[in-house]
Design a protein around this nucleic acid. Structure first.
Length: 432
DNA sequence: TCTGGGGTCCTAGGACCC
DNA sequence: TCTGGGGTCCTAGGACCC
């Protein structure tokens, strides 16, 4: 019955407890045997946010559930707690993907996030082993030998199967490899009852499915497609395909981003009540976003401002905040961007106490030309431009936004209070 | 998950056009 | 305007992922 579907050999590879493992290796400790957590402590993280937990830390301290706060950590000096070095993780990610490209053509390897990649090895796996499984083991061994890191690998006949094999099986087996195929899909997936453990089903969708009487993947696969479509629209069609392991998307097409955007957001370290204070933050974030636009050689033709209220204000207002957007003459300059955002804010704000500010830009268009400045050696500036161009090329090719973090390596000292943070966390030394 | 951050995609109603 | 119907774009909000 699956004869018409694509039959590829797809690997979805991720790094076991990536940030924590990188930190272990950097300390000459075994990533699988060392209890270590990576904790980000910023002014607004309310004591500390846990970004990563090593397998041993999970096992020895009962941290199986998603522990995300410092207050949930046991007080034990044996548990190593370290700050994040996001720039170092980006470098390791690039090194890992360089290794992957020994096993595929460059065009068949897609970085998916800072610790995940998709490899289509349909055309190349026979060069490296007797079976896809053997090739997966060889990739694991190579990365472990050269970088000390452990890979988890999902194998499937399409990207969806590889992803589910990774999430649902590979992470729970000793060899850290999981396999799914059209032939095994039903037997392995349909018994699952924890629907929101399945990629693309979140808590909300799981709840709605429960209301429809769906308590397992089997139920989902056997609901009339028309009923799913009526309840969920296009998402319903996607859920039906999900339940049958069908994924007709081609990787190259899947990767293309339809509506790219660049933005920054912040949970404020405390409640902000005055217009002046709030607008100061909006302006700062606008400047940060404008700088990123310039680094990417982009201008934005559209801006969006999202304001999250404090909990008290949310309760009083019966809504958690507001979000508005506007089309603007394309720009990547601080002043017009900030002015447009402040205008949006004044139009919509009615005095509510604010805790979250998000600025996003879209309708991105190429910005041609780069103005050299007089303060830095020309070589430095040209090097920066080249590096940005290379990163832009990667992003254009792979379409994946995680790589934007890398440009933060280049931002250096700015007047912005959070300069040096990458994705809101400590970047560490770029050249570690 | 009483506040991390950066993203993408989909929906539904309204505006507007022919 | 006691008004048909199809199509597109815009916008705010929702959902999900890493």
């Amino acid at each position: 019955m699956y004869a018409q579907e694509p039959h590829r050999v797809v690997f979805l590879i991720d790094n076991k407890s990536f940030y924590a493992s990188v930190e272990c290796v950097a300390r000459h400790l075994n990533p699988l045997k060392t209890p270590l957590v990576v904790m980000s402590e910023q002014e607004n993280t309310n004591g500390g946010l846990i970004l990563a937990t090593s397998p041993t830390a999970k096992a020895n301290y009962g941290l199986q559930a998603n522990v995300s706060r410092q207050r949930d950590l046991p007080q034990d000096p044996a548990l190593i707690v370290v700050p994040p070095r996001v720039n170092l993780y980006i470098k390791r990610n690039l090194a890992i993907n360089t290794i992957f490209q020994r096993f595929t053509a460059a065009g068949d390897c897609w970085p998916y996030s800072i610790d995940e990649s998709v490899l289509d090895v349909t055309r190349s796996w026979r060069l490296f082993g007797a079976s896809p499984l053997a090739v997966a083991k060889r990739i694991q061994a190579t990365v472990h030998r050269e970088l000390g890191l452990y890979l988890t690998i999902g194998i499937g006949e399409n990207p969806l199967q590889a992803k589910l094999a990774l999430d649902l099986f590979a992470k729970h087996t000793p060899d850290l490899i999981g396999e799914l195929s059209y032939a095994t899909f039903a037997a392995r997936i349909w018994p699952l009852t924890e629907l929101d453990a399945v990629w693309s089903i979140g808590a909300r969708t799981a709840k709605r499915l429960k209301r429809l009487g769906v308590t397992s993947m089997y139920d989902l696969a056997h609901l009339p497609p028309a009923a799913l479509k009526a309840e969920f629209g296009i998402i319903g069609t996607q859920l039906f395909a999900l339940a049958w392991g069908v994924d007709r998307s081609e990787l190259a097409r899947r990767i293309r981003v339809r509506a790219p955007s660049i933005g920054n957001s912040q949970v404020l370290p405390r409640d902000y009540a005055t217009q002046e204070e709030i607008e100061r933050v909006i302006t700062e974030i606008a400047q940060q976003v404008a700088a990123r636009l310039r680094h990417h050689h982009r201008k934005a033709g559209r801006i969006s401002l999202s304001i999250g209220f404090s909990y008290a204000a949310s309760a009083a207002e019966q809504r958690s905040g507001f979000s508005h957007s506007a089309t603007i003459p394309p720009t990547n300059q601080d002043a017009p961007l900030a002015a447009a955002l402040v205008r949006l804010f004044r139009k919509a704000w009615q005095g509510q106490v604010v805790r979250n500010v998000a600025v996003s830009t879209g309708h991105l268009a190429p910005d041609v030309g780069e103005q050299l400045n007089l303060l830095e050696p020309v070589r430095t500036q040209l090097h920066r431009t080249d590096l940005n161009r290379a990163l832009d090329d990667i992003r254009t090719r792979f379409g994946f936004t995680r790589l934007v973090y890398a440009t933060s390596l280049l931002q250096g000292a700015t007047a912005i209070a959070r300069a040096g943070l990458v994705g809101g966390h400590n970047g560490g030394n770029a050249y570690d």
